[in-house]
Nucleic acid binder design. Structure first.
Lengths: 220, 220
DNA sequence: TTTTAATTTTAGATTTGTCTAAATTTTATT
DNA sequence: AATAAAATTTAGACAAATCTAAAATTAAAA
């Protein structure tokens, strides 16, 4: 499981984008990587070939578990090196990103784990972002209620607070279940109802009561 | 002055080889880099293009000052990272080489200098090799008498201990002067005389008295 | 819903670093 | 000194990662 620097950069960028947007588009990734859409398409084919992402042409893409695991290892390296640069080498937090962009591609797993130990197993990098541990576990992403969710952030349904039959029946009817990926498209302050969008389906409305009981977590 | 990892590897290997052999051959470099002679030739053209070495086809090559400076920076990085890995991350001195081979290509000059300071400006790496400082100065290589020099090691004449006219005249006659690169080809225990070889010239004999007064230093 | 616009993909080229096989040059040997 | 052997270089190919320009597909607008 060793990838070229370019592949690692793509994996990492896709990871971040799908965390924000659920599904990633060619243009978005090209913009994030300062490259051309055609180049992204080329790379997608290779990453799909290596079974790191789910991708159908023209339809967008997202990392599968393998791809996520790989991306998280890169992010772990990046953030540990940033921590090192700031805490040990006295760099300012604002000048470490570029250097960490290079260091993150050093491949030795043992090096990363030793560095982690040397730094005291930090769980947050100098920018406040969580540092995945050596198993790829992030600092807990807490689950929040759908009613607290900001607009247009794609999340995954992680739990249903009220397990009443009526509630479950309603969600069943709207085709929302555990693991469903969705985002809030609009909020109506009048009654706190929400318009929710699930990919490839027409938007659905959810009342404040329902929204309050649908718990979601960050989707990666 | 930023070079690809491959170029840096070539520069470094040439530097080491010319330190031992004075002039470097295509085959020797290919062997050192575990690559093919044809690939070396390709790279030589590029390095010559960038004015990092002196090279005429079929005639061997050596780094010029620019090339040496670049090579020394790579060696500096390599040795500092090795020091870091052993002294800070508890690696064994025998397991750091490969990792340092990757780390040495990280380009930030500031990173290297900060690392150097963090490590307390060490002057020797875990294998006992000297670490160049940020100006590229090595721990001084002392000059020794030609009579103490091991066989087949190419060195440069750095001083003449006895400045008598006779001595200088003799050296003049044999075309040996300050800066001349030479090596000892054979030693005759009978009278401690030496056969000395200067590139592109027939071997010359030097008596023990003369050899004792010719001081040489490592040639890079 | 047709037409237009935006997005995405393909086709073909380019750069860097590498390779093999053949040709050239140098060095060693008879 | 002629020939054989070794070393080196050239010619041509390939893989990875990128690009431009054109074609295909999807999404948006009239």
């Amino acid at each position: 499981m060793k990838f070229s620097a370019s592949k690692e950069n793509h994996l990492k960028a896709i990871f971040h984008l799908q965390h924000e947007q659920g599904i990633v588009t060619t243009n978005a990734l090209a913009a994030a990587l300062q490259t051309r859409p055609a180049s992204v398409t080329d790379m997608l084919k290779k990453l799909k070939e290596q079974k790191l992402l789910i991708y159908q042409r023209y339809k967008g893409f997202r990392l599968n578990n393998e791809g996520k695991k790989a991306a998280i290892q890169v992010i772990r390296k990046h953030r540990l090196w940033e921590f090192f640069l700031v805490k040990k080498l006295q760099f300012g937090w604002d000048e470490v990103h570029e250097i960490a962009e290079e260091l993150e591609h050093i491949s030795s797993k043992k090096l990363v784990d030793r560095l982690d130990a040397f730094l005291g197993f930090p769980d947050t990098d100098p920018h406040g972002d969580p540092i995945p541990d050596s198993q790829g576990r992030f600092l807990q992403r807490r689950q929040i209620s759908l009613s607290e969710l900001p607009l247009n952030k794609v999340v995954q349904v992680s739990a249903i607070a009220s397990q009443t039959t009526e509630m479950l029946e309603l969600l069943q009817h709207k085709n929302i279940r555990l693991g469903t990926r969705l985002e809030v498209r609009k909020k109506f302050p009048f009654d706190n109802s929400l318009e929710v969008k699930i990919r490839n389906r027409p938007p659905v409305m959810l009342s404040a009561q329902v929204a309050k009981n649908v718990l979601v977590k960050d989707d990666e």
